[in-house]
């Protein structure tokens, strides 16, 4: 069970959070301008890296805020948390 630091509330147990998949996948400004293939790529395709991954979490049972997490998918270590709109920090070694 992860311990996740909500940027607004502090460290909380994983069951308080809701996972939101890969971060920094912006919704296209004008979906109608996209080809079927490009739109399908936005809707369906996500990275699945072994190692550092930027992903979204929502503090559903707390402040209800969405935020970003850098997590190592091998060790499950939470490497950094940062707010929506912020640029991802360098992953610590």
């Amino acid at each position: 069970m992860l311990l996740i630091e909500c940027p607004w509330c502090g460290s909380r147990e994983e069951p308080e959070f809701h996972y939101g998949g890969q971060a920094h996948v912006a919704r296209p400004a004008d979906p109608s301008a996209l080809s079927d293939a490009d739109w399908a790529a936005y809707v369906f395709l996500r990275d699945n890296p072994k190692g550092v991954f930027a992903e979204r979490w929502c503090h559903s049972a707390g402040c209800r805020r969405w935020f970003n997490v850098l997590r190592d998918t091998v060790s499950h270590r939470v490497l950094a948390v940062y707010r929506m709109g912020e640029t991802p920090p360098e992953a610590p070694r």
Partner: peptide, 12 residues
């Protein structure tokens, strides 16, 4: 959760 997601992340 779905509504908050769009409100906070796509259309702040």
């Amino acid at each position: 959760d779905h509504l908050e997601d769009y409100l906070q992340t796509e259309w702040p």
